[in-house]
Amino acid sequence: MKQFLIPFLLLIVLSCESDRTNRNPFLQEIGFRFDANLNLPLYSPLTNTGSVVLIENNGVGTRGVFVINTGFDQFRAFEASCPNHTPNDCSTMSFNGQVATCSCEDYEYSLFTGEQFNRPDDGNRYYNMLEYRAVFSGNIVSITN
């Protein structure tokens, strides 16, 4: 039995991921849950593919959450605070279509993928949007972290 236990434990230890460089140092990961009922007028635009709604309720994300219908009953949710600096007066992003823009530096992000479009080539590390879990069931989109 011991001959199997040691290799098994060694395999578990070596398979653990130790790379934590993807953690965004600018944004706290706040625990929350929000249910968006698509029958309500405020969230009904999400019944159309490509439509985006900004949820700014208190306690939902740091500065709110963008929710987009990506098609085939799939939804994605992203933090509305710019991921490339600490939250401040200009860091709450606005959106036009499927593009979110940070007014601090005019950084633009895709609301379909969360990726930054105009990443400067200056050698610094830049982060994509912080994504939250979005699950669709019935007519409810549940956003959690």
Rank of each mutant, 00 (worst) to 15 (best):
118 N>A: 01
10 L>W: 07
46 L>H: 12
58 N>S: 12
128 N>D: 15
93 M>S: 04
128 N>P: 13
8 F>H: 01
119 R>D: 04
49 T>W: 06
127 Y>M: 10
16 C>E: 07
144 T>W: 01
50 G>K: 09
64 G>T: 07
109 Y>L: 08
104 C>D: 15
22 N>W: 10
124 N>R: 15
137 S>N: 13
57 N>G: 07
129 M>P: 07
88 N>M: 12
7 P>W: 04
133 R>Q: 00
132 Y>W: 14
36 A>M: 14
58 N>C: 04
101 T>A: 03
42 L>M: 14
123 G>V: 10
62 T>A: 05
75 F>Y: 15
83 P>M: 13
39 N>L: 15
93 M>T: 12
136 F>L: 03
68 I>H: 02
47 T>Y: 08
120 P>T: 13
65 V>M: 02
61 G>D: 06
124 N>P: 03
133 R>I: 03
18 S>K: 14
94 S>W: 08
11 L>E: 01
14 L>F: 15
28 Q>E: 11
98 Q>G: 06
114 G>M: 13
30 I>L: 06
92 T>Y: 02
33 R>L: 01
103 S>H: 13
121 D>V: 14
97 G>H: 09
26 F>E: 10
134 A>R: 04
59 G>F: 03
93 M>Q: 07
145 N>G: 15
69 N>H: 15
116 Q>P: 09
132 Y>Q: 03
43 Y>Q: 05
37 N>F: 09
125 R>G: 03
80 A>F: 10
69 N>E: 11
89 D>E: 15
40 L>W: 12
105 E>R: 09
67 V>N: 00
16 C>P: 01
66 F>I: 07
143 I>F: 00
79 E>I: 07
89 D>C: 05
47 T>A: 15
74 Q>P: 02
73 D>W: 09
54 L>P: 04
36 A>Y: 07
143 I>K: 01
59 G>I: 14
53 V>W: 11
129 M>Q: 08
32 F>E: 03
79 E>L: 04
55 I>T: 02
52 V>I: 06
48 N>C: 04
35 D>W: 03
129 M>H: 05
144 T>H: 01
64 G>L: 08
10 L>V: 12
24 N>R: 08
102 C>G: 13
74 Q>M: 12
45 P>E: 15
140 I>Q: 07
54 L>W: 12
136 F>Q: 03
